[in-house]
C-alpha cells in the first residue's frame, strides 16, 4: 500500500509540475527564450492567491488575481527584459543572468512583503481520507487531475485548430514567413508568454493549499520546469507534460527506499541520466547537437 500511496502523491505532484513545465515549454517552443524566471511567475501567482484569500476574497476571485499577476509578469519579462537583450544579440548567458537577477528581486520582494516563513491557505480540500485501507486521497488530487485534463485539452485544441495557435507553433521555425502572412511575431511572442505564465497558476494555487509556499519556491519551480522540459524533450509540450509527471513520480517513489532528503536529488538523477543517454527526451525531435 505504501507504493500505491506514494504513486498517488507522485501523480498529484507530477500533474502540477506538468502544467508548469508545459508553460515553460510553450514559451521556449514559440520564442526560443529559456525563460529562467518562469518560477517567479509561479511564486507571484501563489502569493497573490494567498494574499487575496487572507483579505477575504472568494477562491475564484483570488485565482483570477493570481492569473493576472502571472500573466502580467510574463508580459513584463517579454517586453522589458528579454526583448531589449535580444535586440543587441544577447547570448544565452546574458538571458540567464538577467532572468536570475529578476528571480532574486521577486524573491526578496516577497520576503519583505510576506516574511520568510512559509504561508498556506487552509481548506478542507487538502484533508485526505481513506479510500482503501491505508490509501489516503484528498479532494485536491481530483482537482489537480481535472485542471490538468481540461487545460491540456484546451491547449491542444487551441494549438492544433486555431489560426493563432498554428502561427504560435510556427513562430520559432520561421518568423519571416509569419510576417509575410501579416502576423506580428511580437504579438505572438507576447501571447506565448501570457499563455505560458498562466499555466503556472493551477500549480501555484494548489501548492498554496497543499504544501504551502515559501519565498524560495521560485527557484525550485524553475529547476523542476527546466528538468521536466529536458526529460520530455526541449520545446515539446507533450514532452514537458510527461517529463513533469515522471519527475513528480520519481521524487515520491524514491522515498520508499531512501530517506526523504534524497527525493529532490532523485528527480535530478533521472534528468542527468536522460541528458547522458537520451538527450532528445521522451518525445523530443530537436537534436542536442
Amino acid at each position: 500500500m505504501l507504493l500505491a500511496q506514494l504513486l498517488i502523491s507522485g501523480i498529484q505532484t507530477g500533474l502540477l509540475y506538468a502544467l508548469t513545465a508545459a508553460g515553460f515549454a510553450l514559451i521556449f517552443g514559440a520564442t526560443r527564450i529559456f525563460h529562467f524566471a518562469h518560477g517567479a511567475a509561479y511564486a507571484l501567482a501563489g502569493y497573490g492567491f494567498v494574499f487575496a484569500v487572507r483579505a477575504g476574497w472568494s477562491w475564484p476571485l483570488a485565482a483570477l488575481l493570481a492569473t493576472v499577476l502571472a500573466v502580467g509578469f510574463g508580459l513584463f519579462m517579454d517586453a522589458f527584459v528579454y526583448r531589449p537583450i535580444q535586440r543587441h544579440t544577447g547570448s544565452f548567458f546574458t538571458v540567464f543572468v538577467a532572468a536570475f537577477g529578476v528571480v532574486i528581486v521577486v524573491q526578496s520582494g516577497i520576503e519583505i512583503g510576506f516574511g520568510r516563513a512559509f504561508v498556506a491557505v487552509t481548506s478542507p480540500l487538502t484533508r485526505a481520507s481513506a479510500v482503501l485501507p491505508g490509501l489516503y486521497l484528498a479532494r485536491a488530487f481530483w482537482i489537480a487531475l481535472a485542471a490538468a485534463g481540461v487545460l491540456f485539452g484546451a491547449l491542444g485544441l487551441f494549438l492544433a485548430r486555431t489560426r493563432t495557435g498554428i502561427a504560435l507553433r510556427a513562430l520559432a521555425e520561421n518568423p519571416d514567413l509569419l510576417r509575410a502572412y501579416g502576423l506580428s511575431a511580437r504579438r505572438l511572442s507576447a501571447l506565448a508568454f501570457a499563455l505560458g505564465s498562466a499555466l503556472a497558476v493551477p500549480g501555484a494555487v494548489l501548492g498554496a493549499a497543499t504544501t504551502g509556499l515559501s519565498p524560495s519556491v521560485a527557484s525550485h519551480v524553475m529547476l523542476v520546469s527546466l528538468a521536466a522540459s529536458v526529460v520530455g524533450g526541449i520545446g515539446s509540450l507533450r514532452g514537458a507534460a510527461a517529463g513533469g509527471l515522471v519527475l513528480g513520480i520519481a521524487e515520491n517513489l524514491v522515498v520508499s527506499v531512501l530517506d526523504t532528503q534524497w527525493s529532490e536529488a532523485a528527480g535530478f538523477v533521472v534528468l542527468f541520466a536522460f541528458i547522458l543517454f537520451r538527450p532528445r527526451g521522451i518525445f523530443g525531435a530537436a537534436l542536442a547537437r
Binding site: 527546466l226 529536458v230 532528503q261 536529488a265 541528458i275 547537437r289
Partner: peptide, 28 residues
C-alpha cells in the same frame, strides 16, 4: 562527460542536475 555529449541549454540543465545531486551528497 555531459559536456562532451550535449551542448547549449542541455548542458546548462545537466550541470544544474549535477549541482543539485552534489548538494544532497555533500549533506549526506
Amino acid at each position: 562527460l555531459p559536456a562532451l555529449r550535449v551542448r547549449g541549454e542541455y548542458f546548462v540543465v545537466a550541470s544544474l542536475g549535477l549541482q543539485m545531486v552534489a548538494t544532497t551528497a555533500f549533506t549526506e
